[in-house]
Design a protein around this nucleic acid. Structure first.
Lengths: 153, 153
DNA sequence: GACAATTAGATTGTGCGCAATTGAAATTGC
DNA sequence: GCAATTTCAATTGCGCACAATCTAATTGTC
């Protein structure tokens, strides 16, 4: 019978790790996005922040972080770079001086139209039907949420 | 009828992005792995390298990179840290002086036994049957491979 | 009103991840 | 046989990610 190494090692084999499937797929997405986002002058995490802001802006950093599962250590420098690129404006809230509100500039709003080409290209690259992708996305989100539920014990 | 914003914006909504599902799931995995890997003294990417080496060591950096989809800019410093931790040894190949061969030290081999507890904990955290996880992994790997196929045009 | 506890964001330090460049070694093309 | 090309690893620089720490502002309790 054909067997690779010892059966006791199966749980430690790279190709059996779902985490590596997810990890490597994330990098593959990043590589496909890169040339598309270069045209917008955005990195992939910056693109995610812009997606959040295009839905609703003038929101505190905290809200963006909760949406993307990122903390201030990641977002503060990223948002400063977006501000340096004149895509967002950062202003202290007058109601709560602890908060910094992130608003889109006119250029930030305008970039949304150029961004509409991105999802189409990604769909083409994934070489997959929309319904299949939606089903997969829902499964992955469900897994992510179960994992996140474990973090807080 | 209930509609969120404009239908034309649906392709740009964060919750419709499969890439974000994958991206955020990768981070969720990382957070679940962290306390488990801390006990082994490994980061997650270092754990992946060790998985590769536990299958077969004495391999050039290039092979590890092809397996994990990582380049020398990532692997060289990572491998130097594993060497500093006395888990691997780096030696120039005598057959091809361009190559650096990575071999496990006795401690590197020994760590495999401690690592066996990791996949079990991950399975528990994912709160999912093995067959469901395998099916999902295969789908994600298939998507990743289609994306990677596009990179080379 | 005073003070402890909490919250928001910024900062620092470490470790990826990748593009671009470099340098040495091997392969090829003629 | 030797120049041109290719290959492999290392290096540099930039941008995440996140833990830990810090400061300032707000809330809760009395």
């Amino acid at each position: 019978m054909a067997r690779k190494h010892s059966a006791a090692d199966a749980p430690l084999r790279l190709d059996n790790q779902i985490c590596f499937a997810v990890y490597s797929a994330a990098h593959a997405f990043n590589r496909v996005y890169k040339p598309l986002l270069d045209r917008l002058g955005l990195t992939y995490p910056q693109y995610l922040v812009m997606l959040v802001l295009w839905e609703r802006d003038d929101v505190p950093v905290k809200d963006i972080g909760e949406r993307l599962f990122l903390d201030s250590g990641t977002l503060t420098p990223l948002l400063k770079r977006l501000e340096a690129a004149h895509l967002v404006k950062r202003t202290r809230s007058s109601e709560d001086e602890r908060q910094v509100l992130i608003a889109l500039t006119p250029q930030g709003h305008a970039l949304k139209d150029k961004a509409r080409a991105v999802p189409q290209s990604i769909l083409a690259a994934s070489d997959c039907s929309v319904s299949e992708l939606v089903a997969m996305k829902d499964e992955i989100v469900a897994l992510r949420d179960r994992l996140n539920a474990v973090i807080g014990e």
